[in-house]
Design a protein around this nucleic acid. Structure first.
Lengths: 238, 238
DNA sequence: CGCACTCTTGACCGCACTCAACGTTGGTGG
DNA sequence: CCACCAACGTTGAGTGCGGTCAAGAGTGCG
């Protein structure tokens, strides 16, 4: 997932984008195939380089997106620069659906990334037409809420060791089935720190500790191999 | 809100409960009045004393609830007893809607509390019949998700002073319009600590600091009067 | 009055932060 | 090709904020 080229299916401006629709929305498995052309006519693609922002907290939220390739980080900033990353998105995820006037977080590409854009008003129209789509989105939002609550436990009560272990275990659990070999960590140490409520140094030290304890292996900065899964689960806490 | 008696409308077991339906569900402002009798026939009331649990994390989630009176705290526990409160609910709020097999948090009464119960399957049937209800719930879930992300910023990046100030300011902001006088803090210092990711002692010390700095006044353990709102907003951070 | 419980206050401690130095890597230009 | 530089990550030394432990004050209840 690191710095690889993207298929050029998605134009960079307002071009129609059938593939985006298919890859972004059809994952809902609720949009029947004969409706895809209409969907495609509504969607526009956009590609983002590493570090490019899709939108910023406070921007008027008149578009919603589905991530079709790459990875996005969602974060909130304080005025003095302190940052909290509230989530990493993977292909198939939605964003921008907050029911307010503005986005409540910023979104930035972790790796080269492709998204699909819908005008908010059009998207809300879709919900009217296809109740199953609304049900799907409610389900996803509920799942995200549960994940956010789990993260609140991590941020409020876990030690640095427990946080890093939880992070690795969660990555492993979320990985698509069938994938094998070491886990990819596309994000920087700074991103991990801002996701776990720690500093870069503490994250780095903790990775090193785990390596020395032979809980994990670190063949590369952006690769983690879990060596002793049970012990790592143990460290992650309940 | 502290320890007052509840109206005896709601039976304690499986009795029908029209008032619960009205007060709990009609706040959605989407259920037309002529459908209320059917709704009432589905709802059962339950009352909880202080400290009683409505359900625990891991229980099979075959009921959903609306809070009609009082206050509930939702929390997650670690095996060694560390606790993170993920939210306080007020009348009109829903809970138990997580789209999984089991509840992902425990729910316990902060003060004498009344809830309305629906069998999950029946409630899902309601969603089918009244799409507006589903839309309302999606809106609420999105709002809660945004609140959870705001809390992640607090737990991950804010200092103790900032956390306590944010807590007071958020309470003031969420209070029903028109209410006047000091804010009520129905929950204990331990609850506040577990909500803010701090210890009882730090919460207590910080309240005292704010009082000495004349940012707030503390006429009672469970009352806070904001004296200098602007400065408190300042301390709460952005 | 005595007991239990909550909250407050003080003294001390330790985990994670801060500051600093160094190693590694990748890109750029001479 | 190598020299240079910037960005990122690692490691070490010291510090400080919030946690821990302990004692005492305030409150409600039987």
């Amino acid at each position: 997932m690191v710095a690889r080229a993207l298929p050029a299916t998605c134009g960079n401006s307002g071009t129609l984008c059938e593939e985006c629709s298919v890859r972004g929305l059809a994952v809902c498995s609720v949009v029947s195939l004969n409706q895809l052309p209409r969907l495609a006519a509504m969607a526009a693609g956009r590609r983002l380089e590493i570090g490019q922002t899709l939108f910023q907290e406070g921007d008027t939220a008149d578009e919603v997106f589905t991530l079709t390739d790459g990875m996005l980080k969602l974060y909130k900033l304080m005025s003095d620069g302190r940052r909290q990353i509230v989530g990493f998105l993977v292909p198939g995820d939605f964003l921008g659906l907050a029911f307010g006037r503005t986005y409540v977080y910023s979104a930035e590409a972790v790796v080269p990334t492709a998204v699909c854009r819908f005008r908010r008003s059009q998207f809300l129209g879709l919900l009217e037409e296809w109740p199953h789509l609304e049900k799907e989105i409610l389900g996803r939002t509920s799942t995200e809420l549960a994940a956010a609550q789990e993260q609140m436990l991590l941020l409020g009560r876990k030690t640095a060791r427990e946080r890093v272990a939880s992070f690795i275990v969660a990555l492993a659990r979320r990985r698509k089935l069938g994938a094998d070999g070491p886990l990819e960590l596309p994000m920087s140490r700074a991103d991990i720190a801002d996701y776990l409520g720690l500093t870069i140094e503490t994250v780095s030290r903790t990775f090193t500790m785990f390596r020395k304890e032979r809980l994990i292996d670190l063949p590369d900065k952006h690769l983690v191999e879990i060596v002793r899964r049970d012990e790592l689960d143990q460290v992650a806490g309940v």
